[in-house]
Amino acid sequence: MEAILSSFLTKYNYWVFIGLVMIGLYALIAKRNLVKKIIGMNIAQTAVILFYVSIGAKQGSTIPILDSSHGHDAHHAVQAIDYINPLPHVLMLTAIVVSVATLGVALALAIKVYQQYGTLEEDEIQAQIDKT
């Protein structure tokens, strides 16, 4: 019990991300409404972003924008330990864009489905398909 508690305290970001992945995935699979499914998918993708950004954190460091901005001697003073890891942030900029793009296409498809069937409820759509 104590081990779990201390694990939670030292890694709570990771606990939260796993919780969010599970919530998102559950909504994606169990919900009947297509828009709710899309929202679930987005929650899961956001959870992945939280995970990556958590990797980048370093205790006692600041954002990776160097202090002594101008001048050529800047790199003498730079210590990696003072700045958080920029790479996960770069990766997540990409992942955010990907999730926005996926969301856009998903909504477009949902609109197309709605135009065709007049509903976004999966079971009602299924009933219409079975009829024909």
């Binding site: 990776p64 160097l66 901005s69 050529h72 800047a74 790199h75 730079v78 990696a80 920029p86 790479l87």
Partner: peptide, 10 residues
């Protein structure tokens, strides 16, 4: 990542 932080600006 230290490489990026130390070399990036230079």
């Amino acid at each position: 990542s230290p490489f990026y932080i130390e070399q990036g600006a230079a």
